[in-house]
């Protein structure tokens, strides 16, 4: 039983071909799996282990190191709010608190606090599915998220794969 769907199996082969050692493909394949499924499930890790000639424990060890890879199901929209030093003094924490309260019971939106996003000249900054939004306020941040929820805004895929 394959975790990856047919087009992603092909994409996975392409990814594997980029590296002299298949283990290097663990991160790109994990991104691919998240694009397909929204999170990195055990089944996904098992197949990645299979494809890269490693073990599931190996894949788990690697993937759990990285904060972008989610090992629990999470919302379709991941809202990452920076609270690092520049955003800290320009209102980042307020935006975070507001979004957390606003989306506390909305399973399709996961709000998380993140470290510096390299957008400090536009602080406070946030990302929705890794699309940048700068100089946000609590209210504009909600508007932005709602834009994604209603489909007027769209994010790229992380793996670079086109997802139907």
């Amino acid at each position: 039983m394959s975790f990856f769907d047919e087009s992603n199996v092909a994409k996975a082969k392409e990814i594997l071909a980029r590296y002299p050692r298949p283990k290097s493909a663990i991160l790109p394949l994990a991104h691919l799996a998240q694009d397909q499924n929204g999170w990195l499930s055990p089944e996904a890790m098992e197949q990645i282990a299979d494809l890269t000639g490693t073990t599931p424990a190996d894949v788990l060890g690697t993937c759990s190191f990285y904060t972008m890879l989610k090992r629990r199901p999470c919302g379709k929209f991941v809202v990452s709010v920076c609270t690092n030093v520049t955003c800290l003094v320009t209102g980042g924490p307020e935006v975070l608190d507001h979004l957390e309260a606003r989306y506390a019971s909305e399973p399709d939106v996961t709000v998380e606090e993140v470290e510096c996003l390299a957008a400090c000249d536009g602080a406070p900054a946030l990302q929705v599915n890794y699309e940048f939004h700068e100089r946000v306020s609590p209210s504009s941040a909600v508007e932005i998220v709602e834009g994604y929820r209603s489909g007027t805004r769209r994010a790229r895929t992380v793996s670079g794969a086109t997802v139907a």
């Binding site: 055990p42 890790m45 190996d58 894949v59 788990l60 690697t62 759990s64």
Partner: peptide
């Protein structure tokens, strides 16, 4: 393997 990082890092099986 080690799972998670920093001071949350722990030994674990899959």
């Amino acid at each position: 393997d080690f799972v998670d990082r920093g001071d949350r890092m722990q030994v674990l099986n899959f």
